[in-house]
Computed example of a mutant assay.
Amino acid sequence: MSPTDASANAGTAPIADIGSDPSPGTSENSTNTGVGLGACSEDTLELRLPEELLALFEEERAGTGGEQHQAEGTAQLSSATSAGDDLLDRVADWGPTATPAGVFHLVPVCVERDVPLVGRWMNDPAVAAFWELAGPQNATEEHLRAQLTGDGRSVPCLGVLEGTPMSYWEIYRADLDPLARRYPARPHDTGIHLLVGGITDRGRGLGSTLLRAVADLVLDKRSACTRVVAEPDLRNIPSVAAFLSAGFRFSAEVDLPAKRAALMVRDRSLRDLL
């Protein structure tokens, strides 16, 4: 099942992102505590892509030939995707970005190193209600490995702020995800799932700040991407508000396997206006 995100603000309901699970075993996004897709992983693993998307994918393939966290995350990602099949333009190489909250860095997850931390966050009741990955660490490990050993259409990352891992992210190809069946997807649409791990990092606008920063990173590093999307649970008002504050616009209501979601979109053409 795909998780929903937890809220971006401390003490509020968790934030959710768009849709069924992103690429192999991802979850919904949350801004505050846990942002992510819930029943996503099951959907994604059984995904049967439309013929037009498969053709697009083949064309694309034919045309392409903390420091410790970054190094290990890069190695982990490299083992999961070959040079010619990186569908997200090498997230591991995106590097740090400056935000009003400090220097922020998306670092691909290393299972052996990061499962205890991510598993602890997943067992936070505010996160578990949406991501549905509470329980033994092996549940978290399976969720992460499904993405890391997949075809690269979803990359799980730690969000490292000023050298401290404080959030979990999934950057995924929304156009190659089951979500694409629920809205008029465009080639290279990129989805975001987020959960903010620590209670002290919630409820002070940090979720919105980081969502804006990561959406800008996607648009800066993925020249073919014209839109960043997310699918918070409609009932999760704090989450929807966080996306709106981060420059996303409400596009539509979308029925997903585990929820009715608000389709949130950040357009390249409007990024300087919202």
Rank of each mutant, 00 (worst) to 15 (best):
Q76I: 01
R48N: 11
A62D: 13
E142M: 12
G95W: 01
R266L: 13
F243I: 05
Q70W: 02
G73D: 08
G84P: 02
A258R: 10
A10T: 09
T4H: 07
L179G: 15
L194A: 14
A224H: 04
D233W: 06
T74S: 12
R235H: 11
A139G: 04
Q70V: 14
G19S: 09
G152H: 02
I237E: 11
C110W: 00
L211S: 13
L219K: 01
E162K: 10
Y172W: 06
M1Q: 13
L37N: 05
P238L: 05
A134C: 09
T149R: 09
P257L: 11
S78C: 05
A128H: 03
E42T: 11
A242T: 06
L144Q: 07
A262R: 01
E42F: 06
G66P: 09
V160G: 05
L195Q: 08
Q76H: 08
V240F: 04
V109T: 15
D5T: 08
G95A: 08
E58I: 07
A83R: 07
G84A: 09
D43C: 10
D5L: 10
M166S: 15
V228F: 02
V196A: 13
E67T: 13
Q70F: 01
P232I: 06
E58H: 13
M264A: 13
R249P: 00
L144G: 03
N138M: 05
P165I: 01
S78H: 08
L54V: 13
L133K: 07
G65A: 14
T74Q: 14
E141D: 14
V254L: 09
D86F: 02
L263Y: 06
P238Q: 04
M122G: 01
R181C: 01
S251F: 02
E42A: 10
E162M: 02
D267N: 12
S223L: 11
T44G: 15
P108T: 09
V265L: 15
G247E: 12
R268S: 10
R204W: 05
L133Q: 12
P50I: 04
L244W: 01
N123W: 02
T12A: 14
